[in-house]
């Protein structure tokens, strides 16, 4: 039982973590809560769905190889979604650089409403059903039931997180992101193009959110245009739980949130499932005001 709940929690937690990374990255460089990020995740899921429904029209060598095909779908969907992130920043946030702190929040919400309704009108309000593909066979091992797809999803999210960790810490662009989030002004002085860094950050966050979207779509089988709302809130909570602005924090926060919810709903009442997460959040913040892995809040003098 316990192991089963743990596994359930880790599966959903992986997707929370991927989305949370988007919040955290953007918060790092812009000190801004990107409220439209949940919608980006939803768009990613839809792009995955559209691409998968195009599969019959794809060249035969792709159709033969399920794994390769899924990789292609994931990467193409995430790449297009990264463009969404790019344009989101350009249209809704860039003109508001230097505006009062809460202003971008409103344009983010505007963008969120716009994207939701754009998808609803163009794709219809009905749930879109992913074709049942691979690995849906149930395997039971020591009382724990899981599907192959579930394992693939857990490992892919961990791999993606490793990838982003490597990107942030080991590449020039990643280091530039780190520099910008520490001090944008100094970063611009040492020759970092802050605008480019911000665009890249948005694209990276959207890329991960889209991956989460496609995987959620594949795993649960149905998506609709309201997906981004709950996903967004949960992931945001996860990001704060781990310490917003902190990359490993978002990962830890995501998994932790998933596990808390699964255990809470499993051992207590599922009616209060969302309450446990928020209670834990409040409790954590009372003792560690900057989240689990966050560093102390800077006091500006």
């Amino acid at each position: 039982m316990f192991l089963q709940h743990l596994l359930n929690g880790i599966t959903i937690g992986g997707s929370y973590a991927l989305i949370a990374l988007g919040y955290t990255l953007v918060y790092g460089v812009l000190k801004l809560i990107n409220f439209a990020h949940g919608e980006i995740y939803m768009i990613g899921a839809y792009l995955g769905f559209i691409l998968i429904s195009l599969i019959p029209a794809m060249p035969p060598f792709l159709q033969g190889n399920v794994i390769l095909m899924m990789m292609v779908v994931l990467i193409v969907a995430a790449a297009i979604c990264a463009l969404y992130g790019f344009y989101l920043e350009k249209i809704c946030y860039r003109p508001l650089r230097g505006a009062p702190k809460l202003t971008p929040l409103i344009s983010a919400l505007g963008a969120s409403i716009f994207l939701q309704n754009f998808v609803m009108i163009s794709m219809g309000a009905k749930d879109q059903i992913f074709p049942q593909t691979i690995g849906m066979k149930t395997i039971t091992l020591g009382g724990v039931s899981f599907t192959l797809l579930q394992l693939v999803i857990i490992f892919s999210s961990i791999a993606l997180m490793a990838l982003i960790y490597w990107f942030i810490n080991r590449t020039r662009l990643g280091v530039a992101i780190k520099a910008t989030s520490t001090d944008p002004y100094m970063a611009s002085l040492v020759g970092i193009n802050v605008d480019t860094v911000i665009s890249v950050t948005f694209m990276a966050g959207s890329f991960l959110a889209a991956c989460a979207g496609v995987m959620i779509g594949l795993y649960y089988g149905s998506i609709n245009f309201t997906l981004g709302y709950l996903g967004g809130i949960k992931a945001f909570t996860a990001a704060v739980l781990g310490g917003i602005g902190n990359v490993p924090g978002a990962m830890v926060g995501g998994f932790l949130l998933g596990i808390i919810e699964a255990l809470g709903a499993g051992y207590f009442s599922s009616e209060y499932k969302d309450v446990y997460a928020f209670f834990i959040l409040i409790a954590v913040l009372v003792f560690r005001p900057a989240g689990l892995l966050g560093k102390g809040v800077n006091e500006r003098a």
Partner: peptide, 20 residues
């Protein structure tokens, strides 16, 4: 006797509980 949240995708906790 369990309640779920509308709009979510993951109901595995409640399903696990019901199954047991």
């Amino acid at each position: 006797f369990e309640g779920i949240t509308k709009g979510e995708k993951d109901y595995s906790p409640v399903v696990t509980k019901v199954k047991s």
